[in-house]
Amino acid sequence: MADATHFAGIDLGSAFTKAVVITGDGEVVGRHVERTGISFETNADKVFDGALNEAGLTRAQVKAVGATGVGRRNCAFATVVKPEIGCFAKGVFFHQRGLCVVIDIGGQDNKIIRVTAQGQQDFFKMNRKCAAGTGAFLEEISFKLAVPQPEMNARASRATKVVSIGSYCTVFSATEIIHHIREGHDVDAIFRGVYESVVKRVLEMAPITDTAVLAGGAIATNPVLVDLFREKLKVPVVVPPSPQTLGALGAALYARDGAASDDTDA
């Protein structure tokens, strides 16, 4: 344990499991992402080992591990367990000092988190029990139309028009899209409308009045969302490095700072 100088964070999300390994200064030296699939436990091990491998480290060199995300309690080797809202706030604050609003678009949850100039989360809001506007929505549309997300993203980026998608429900949005395709609308414009609907759902959650910091897997894999947020928001829009692993970074920082888990006596 004398050689244990590093820290790790594991974000066990509904769609992807992410790991980062950091130094005592918070520098990310290893990172790994895998689809979550059906076993949180197996994937936690896999991403941890993947990140360690990238860093050229062993588990013995890691002093503490923070776990976050929907499967945070399924990470057997975690020393600290924290909800992802605080982890995103902490991960974002590491890169973005000053008052800001985190917009996290994850697999099943959207979150808006206000972070104070001192790095404290002082307000947050999550989406309702509904997939519209989340990463799951984009996955569903991609699957339904048999168009991979990178292609959807590229086509939406080059679109010069937008076909609005008005449905609240993910399933009925897909039906609406098929209706537009049948009517002969430009497919690129339909894809742009799909991404616009995600942005609209998020902006309906709470007013964004300070610098917006974009986070989450959907942001990482769909850069057109960044363009659309920049188009719609009247505040600076920032994308920190590796937006998909910001929650894992926050968990690692909590582990480094010796935080106690929220749900424990520790």
Binding site: P83, E84, I85, G86, Q108, D109, Q120, F124, M126, D262
Partner: peptide
């Protein structure tokens, strides 16, 4: 329940 647990924990932490 999952979404609510995350919200409650984050709220109490705040």
């Amino acid at each position: 329940e999952e979404q609510t647990t995350t919200s409650l924990e984050a709220f109490v932490e705040q």
